[in-house]
Design a protein around this nucleic acid. Sequence first.
RNA 1: AGUCCGGUUUGGGCAAUUGCUGUCAUAAAAUGGCAGAGGAAAGUCCGAACUUCCCAGAACAGGGUGCCGGGUAAUACCCGGGGACCGGAGGAGCAAUCCUUCGGUUACGGAAAGUGCCACAGAAAAAAUACCGUUCCUCAUUUAUGAGGAAUAAGGGUGAAAAGGCAGGGUAAGAGCCUACCGCAGUAAUGGUAACAUUACUGGCACGGUAAACCCCACCCGAAGCAAGAUCAAAUAUGGAAGUUUUUUCCAUAAAGGAAACAAAGGUGUUCUGCUUUGUUAAACUUCCGGGUAGAUCGCUGGAUUCUGGUGGCAACAUCAGAACAAGAUAAAUAAUUGCCGCCUGCCUUAGGCGGGUUACAAAAUUCGGCUUACAGAACCGAACUGCUU
RNA 2: UGCCCCGUGGUGUAAUUGGCAACACGUCUGACUCUGGAUCAGAAAAGUUUAGGUUCGAGCCCUAACGGGGCAG
Length: 130
Amino acid sequence: MKRFGLSSAERIKSKKIFEKIFTYGSTIFSYDQKIKANYILEAGNAGVKFAAAVSKKNGNAVWRNRLKRLLREAYRLNKQTLVEFSLKKDLSIKVVFLPHRLNQKDNKKICYDEIAPAVVDLMSKMTGAK
RNA sequence: AGUCCGGUUUGGGCAAUUGCUGUCAUAAAAUGGCAGAGGAAAGUCCGAACUUCCCAGAACAGGGUGCCGGGUAAUACCCGGGGACCGGAGGAGCAAUCCUUCGGUUACGGAAAGUGCCACAGAAAAAAUACCGUUCCUCAUUUAUGAGGAAUAAGGGUGAAAAGGCAGGGUAAGAGCCUACCGCAGUAAUGGUAACAUUACUGGCACGGUAAACCCCACCCGAAGCAAGAUCAAAUAUGGAAGUUUUUUCCAUAAAGGAAACAAAGGUGUUCUGCUUUGUUAAACUUCCGGGUAGAUCGCUGGAUUCUGGUGGCAACAUCAGAACAAGAUAAAUAAUUGCCGCCUGCCUUAGGCGGGUUACAAAAUUCGGCUUACAGAACCGAACUGCUU
RNA sequence: UGCCCCGUGGUGUAAUUGGCAACACGUCUGACUCUGGAUCAGAAAAGUUUAGGUUCGAGCCCUAACGGGGCAG
């Protein structure tokens, strides 16, 4: 596995896994309330799977695509701690990132520096809580 | 030179690092090379290709289109022309208005095939039943009024719309009743492929509006849509066939057997009950066939393709030659950061220096041809107006 | 991605082939009551999602846009 890579094997693609996460998983919010994360932990099969989901109500297609790319970029550059935690405890982690108090009306142009701290904060909360 | 309107084109560039999708190279892992979002990708308003269903044809129903000619695979699209309307300029005229030219808009077939509707107001809303008024006749009397009869659509008022306009003649008063001009309708000639235009003659007018009301006429249309559809195929439901093993619901038993239930067949179009005949009864396992969910592969990008040039055509477009392959994902790639140039902008201001911004509308989802809508800035073209100069 | 449907006071619904936008609940004011509720009387609140067109006249007919909702293997 590459240090800063993000291949398709590390992403969630099945509809069933999404349903599982949203019904049984737990939710945490970032310090500035911009991003939230739904995640689920299972014993065995060490590894982390990731996805970003943006609702149609938050903005138009261009805005949604941009937010998903920024979330993916922030995760890709800062995923190291989460992967090490997973390998150490032998847990399979599945995470979905969603915008909480972000929409196109208030933030027409968003950039990487606004998203990255929130994502890092969420991941440190997940590892620290266990 | 500026303002405003309309139209066309364009929709920042180069490089580095990290990462994603596709593809090519090496036997594979991995590494490297190459490529990677728009003019609207949008809305889904039209038209096609393609696929499945149905397929022998015809008719009806339903839907669509609607001045004429051309273009196209096809269209509600495009090009050219005609009519009508709007705006500007110029000219003619006392004026109404008309003519010329430039630009724009136009769902623009039929109201003498038929039906419906036209609220309120008004006498009357379509075969004019005459409200006020005008005129004549008769009768009555208070002698200028009343009653009755007749003629009259010129005038009044109502309305969105009132039965050709205007002038002269005519008349009891009036009226296309007659005449000139204009409008309208018909016929003919000329020009034009045609829509239509022009001219001449005839008719005195007969024909209010509405078809984005029903309808009539002409032409066109089978339905659904890539989540179409094709192939492979875990699972699950347990459908069918074959085989093997253990074993039999009740009664009776030495054995044969009997009963019950279920299934099939028989006579009827169907159902139920009964009858007759035949067969079977429970469980497990294996194999084959069928079925087709999760998932995978195909459909999936080389095509009514793009660019350049020639030829034909007023043009849309057609055709010929040469060159080029230009995204193909599926919880869904095309991104992040940085530097330089370009552009916009603030301050200090001679050059120049310092700082900020990097953009509008918006992102492929089977593929094309249009239409419609959104759009910062830039470039070009056309028309009008204003100012200055000649 | 494709297909289909709907927009009327604050809310839920009407409006017969085009002719004054109606009703209920809610809101406000007054009366009744010591006060509130209930009851009675009265009032305000839309111009029909938006923009064009047809018509003498559009909630209704036509075209485009905007918003909301539903269906599918």
